[in-house]
Write a protein that binds this DNA or RNA. Structure first.
Lengths: 198, 198
DNA sequence: GCAACAATGTTGTCAACGGAAACATACTGC
DNA sequence: GCAGTATGTTTCCGTTGACAACATTGTTGC
């Protein structure tokens, strides 16, 4: 009994995009655990097996979400970096942009950081390199200007990156009230600039 | 057809403990996602509905794991703090102990930080206060000794805590090779002690 | 134009899971 | 030695991810 009585075409046309969109909404609303392929299919109005043509299994969909997440993060950081010229200002801008992204997309962020060590996640690792490189360049910039001590750029940058990530984690876990996050980022940047100067 | 042909007693006797043990092994081996109550029951040798007497649902088991995790983390930090007397040494010891715990129990740690904002997780929040208080006390100690600037103890301490947590996250996500983690922690502690001194 | 062929969507099926109810067995206090 | 409770078993249900077989549409070579 085919209940496809409406005039919906047999082919959706952009199922993949529709799936990703719906998945991101679901991710935001209920978390990755309760993201169900069948739910998404229902919401979009296709059969329960249709998503399989675009994502061979559930994890593939989650991986695609993570990959897109890194691209969006990269964008957010890039546009934040444009808002300031001096080095401390640029660090501050990047730091607040990162934690804002991380708290506004907490479930997505978790996905981005945990889908990676699975085999075959090379696309994700590659996508992650863009925002990471951005932070690295920022540190190198500080070193050239003499605002930061010389030494392994990556090691210094990763510490800053880790601090921001940690602050976001604590915020997302409600271990730190959200209204304190901005101040925390401020403190972290200050301490970083003091602790890593020549 | 009851296949309970062996002499296994009707009552297991310590199912709850056995479940938690098996669950922790499963967590370590396959992650929280693929932790199945029925699998655990099978492994232990009880019926699939037996765990329900001890954990009303799956999440309750995960919560119990998280709670136990905080207690173990507290222990690890406590014994690490005993290994050094001077303030910088104690910070270093606590920092390496934390990241070691976090990388050796990555799936558990994730559980500890994400099971918390669920309603009715007051037991977990309470369990989390022990290790958090420990870190806070450490910072206060540094302030009393004049090694750290005065000001809101918590804010200063949280930044350090966040940094360690972030380093662990990056390590667990394979975004930083494991062999670099120790050096990263070292750098982070150094920068912290420099950046937060009076 | 049209005949393969590829791409995309549908239907039907399966095993596994979490959850729940009804029942069985063991323990405990009295 | 018995009543009440704690713990475990059986049986069932609805949902899910995965898979295979089939249907429809789009595309491409000729």
């Amino acid at each position: 009994m085919p209940d496809q009585s409406d005039d919906r075409p047999y082919h959706h046309g952009s199922l993949r995009t529709a799936l990703l969109d719906a998945a991101e909404r679901g991710l935001r609303a209920h978390g990755a655990d309760r993201l169900s392929l069948r739910d998404l299919a229902r919401e979009i109005g296709v059969s329960h097996a249709a998503p399989r043509r675009h994502f061979p299994d559930r994890q593939a969909l989650l991986d695609a979400l993570a990959e897109a997440g890194f691209a969006r993060l990269d964008n957010a950081l890039r546009s934040a970096l444009k808002t300031a010229d001096d080095f401390p200002g640029r660090v501050r801008a990047a730091a607040t942009a990162y934690t804002r992204f991380a708290t506004e997309n907490s479930a997505l962020l978790e996905l981005m950081y945990t889908s990676k060590h699975r085999p075959g996640a090379s696309r994700i690792v590659q996508a992650a390199e863009a925002p990471f490189g951005l932070m690295n360049d920022l540190i190198a910039e500080g070193q050239e200007q003499g605002a930061l001590q010389d030494g392994p750029t990556q090691r210094i940058g990763v510490v800053l990156f880790a601090t921001l990530q940690g602050i976001a984690t604590l915020g997302n876990g409600n271990l730190v009230p959200p209204e304190l996050l901005d101040g925390l980022v401020e403190t972290a940047v200050e301490q970083f600039l003091r602790g890593a100067r020549p």
